[in-house]
Computed example of a mutant assay.
Amino acid sequence: MAIRLPLNSLAVDTAHGDKIGYVMGHVGGDTQLRPPGGGVEWDADPNLVRPATATEALRARVTELNRAERLV
């Protein structure tokens, strides 16, 4: 049984090559994820989504900061 990850937490979609994203919602049996720094959300199978490790979360936050810096 899939765990329901909290909104705004960082998660890893193992079905899409360990793609990381923020949990934006849970609709129709799917978990919606958004890439760090913005972008198009995607639907993920909640059975194939896991919480991000501390290292993965740090990497995602660095990615966000780098993207934000390029926009300035």
Score class of each variant (00 low, 15 high):
Trp42Glu: 04
Ala44Val: 01
Glu41Leu: 12
Pro6Asp: 08
Val49Pro: 09
Trp42Phe: 08
Ala11Asn: 01
Gly37Phe: 01
Ala11Leu: 02
Leu71Glu: 03
Val62Gln: 14
Ala52Tyr: 11
Pro51Lys: 12
Leu7Asp: 02
Arg50Asn: 07
Thr31Asn: 04
Glu69Ile: 10
Ala2Glu: 11
Ala60His: 08
Glu64Leu: 02
Arg67Leu: 13
Leu48Glu: 15
Thr63Asn: 09
Ala2Gly: 01
Arg59Asp: 14
Met1Arg: 14
Gly38Ala: 04
Arg61Gln: 14
Met1Lys: 14
Glu69Gln: 13
Ala15Met: 04
Asp30Lys: 13
Val23His: 04
Asp18Arg: 10
Val62Cys: 05
Arg70Ile: 02
Ile3Gln: 12
Asp18Ile: 00
Pro46Tyr: 10
Ala54Thr: 14
Thr31Leu: 08
Gly37Pro: 02
Thr53Met: 11
Ile20Asp: 00
Leu71Cys: 02
Leu58Cys: 10
Tyr22Trp: 11
Ala2Tyr: 13
Pro36Cys: 00
Gly21Lys: 07
Leu5Tyr: 10
Tyr22Gly: 00
Arg61Trp: 12
Met1Ile: 09
Asn8Phe: 12
Thr63Arg: 15
Glu64Phe: 08
Val23Leu: 03
His26Arg: 01
His26Gln: 00
Arg50Ala: 06
Asn47Asp: 15
Arg34Gly: 05
Gly21Leu: 03
Trp42Met: 10
Tyr22Leu: 08
Gly29Thr: 01
Pro6Trp: 05
Leu58Ala: 15
Gly38Tyr: 01
Met1Ser: 13
Thr55Lys: 15
Gly37Ile: 07
Asp13Cys: 00
Ala15Thr: 03
Val27Trp: 12
Pro6Tyr: 01
Ala15Pro: 04
Met1Pro: 15
Val27His: 06
Arg50Phe: 07
Leu10Cys: 02
Gly17Asp: 00
Asp43Tyr: 14
Ala44Glu: 05
Pro46Thr: 05
Thr63His: 09
Gln32Thr: 13
Pro35Gln: 02
Arg34Leu: 11
Glu56Lys: 04
Asn8Met: 08
Glu41Thr: 10
Leu33Asn: 02
Pro46Arg: 05
Asp45Lys: 05
Arg34Trp: 09
Leu7Phe: 04
Leu33Ala: 03
Leu48Thr: 15
Leu71Arg: 03
Thr53Arg: 09
Leu71Tyr: 01
Gly17Pro: 07
Ile20Leu: 05
Pro46Lys: 02
Ile3Trp: 12
Leu10Ile: 00
Asn8His: 10
Gly38Ser: 06
Val49Met: 06
Pro36Met: 00
Arg61Ala: 09
Ala60Met: 07
Thr53Asp: 11
Thr55Trp: 06
Ala52Gln: 08
Pro46Glu: 08
Asp30His: 09
His26Cys: 00
Glu56Arg: 06
Asp13His: 01
Ala11Met: 01
Val27Glu: 12
Gly17Arg: 03
Leu33Cys: 06
Leu48Gln: 11
Val27Asn: 07
Arg67Asn: 13
Trp42Asn: 06
Leu10Met: 10
Ala54Ser: 13
Ile3Cys: 12
Gly29Lys: 00
Gly29Gln: 02
Asp18Leu: 05
Asn66Ala: 09
Asn66Gly: 09
Ile20Pro: 01
Thr14His: 06
Ala57Trp: 05
Val27Asp: 08
Lys19Trp: 12
Gly37Leu: 06
